[in-house]
């Protein structure tokens, strides 16, 4: 009798589930640490460089794997929801970095330079997110097409 030896899929699923949770927790902790060190403690860049590199490696690895598997563009959220989320993230980023710069370089005085800086940062972040999203979506579609063409 030819029985193909299986890996225990139930255990694999459980390990994957907890692996995913661990990734989310570690990423959240790293992000909080970066935010705390940069914004609250106002430490120089090199003080949180390691956390930033580890955080970015994790995010890039995950995004590339998902894209390569042709799953990036299968996100079910509507376009309106996605664009609203991107806009909110960009605004938060703009405000956070803009206010940090205000306390660092303008002695905490809110003026037109602060507003200008927040607007520019928000717009930049929004454009970068949209470009990254569109790029990964295209790559993901291409990868999916390649998989279906082969099989």
């Amino acid at each position: 009798m030819n029985i193909k030896k299986n890996k225990d899929e139930r255990i694999e699923k459980i390990q994957n589930r907890y692996g995913t949770h661990t990734f989310i927790i570690v990423s959240a902790l790293l992000f909080s640490s970066i935010l705390f060190k940069s914004v609250v403690m106002n430490l120089p860049f090199k003080e949180y460089l390691t956390e930033l590199v580890i955080f970015l490696i994790g995010m890039v690895y995950y995004t590339l794997k998902i894209t390569n598997a042709g799953l990036f563009h299968t996100v079910k959220e509507s376009k309106i929801y996605l664009i609203t989320s991107f806009a909110l993230i960009s605004i938060l980023f703009g405000i956070l970095v803009g206010l940090t710069n205000m306390f660092r370089y303008q002695n905490g005085q809110f003026n037109e330079i602060t507003m200008f800086s927040i607007s520019i940062l928000t717009a930049e972040a929004f454009v970068i997110i949209i470009i990254a999203w569109i790029t990964f979506e295209k790559l993901s579609k291409r990868s999916e097409k390649k998989q279906f063409d082969v099989e």
Partner: peptide
């Protein structure tokens, strides 16, 4: 024989997996 754990067989028989 199948290459999995006893617990998984038990859960399949119980209808929990």
């Amino acid at each position: 024989l199948v290459g999995i754990t006893r617990q998984t067989i038990g859960l399949i028989e119980l209808g929990k997996y």
